[in-house]
Amino acid sequence: MRWFWIDRFIEFESGVQAKAVKNVSLAEEHLHDHFPGFAVMPGSLMLEGMAQTGGILLGETHDFEHIVILAKVPKITYHSWACPGDSLIYTAKLVEAREEGGMVECTAYVGDRLVAEAEIVFVHLDQSDPAMGAVDQKNFVFSMNLLGILDVGKAGDGTSTD
């Protein structure tokens, strides 16, 4: 399994906000254990999807020169759930973007039903940092594969990037 918890961006307004979609599918193995007979998208993975949406929004403001790490989730509230067949729309708004890190406010909707909302704080690490030597880069979402998701959707000026 690849650690991509968004399927693609549907809007990307540089430095302001991003929207991504995650289609929940019964083909996802974990849904058969979570829970047997009642498949719902785990809240932790919704949080990961929101963090990927917000993390890429933040990373893009610095041209992805920093490694963006989820550092803290000051607030998360789950209001509802998402089942196979649902399309989760994650919206991340950039609240802060600084040299040392940033913060986003996120929501997750299925249609007009609010499923979750969160505040997420990120810190920046530099690839040149000697302490980063032991970090497996594959664990980070900023690989070329995930950046490719940015090719689909809307550019900052509202035009299609197709």
Partner: peptide
Amino acid sequence: SIDFLDIVFRLEKNFDVKIPR
């Protein structure tokens, strides 16, 4: 340690000030 960054973000927002690193 990570809370210090969060606190700085919130102070900037709540008081509308800039707090350099």
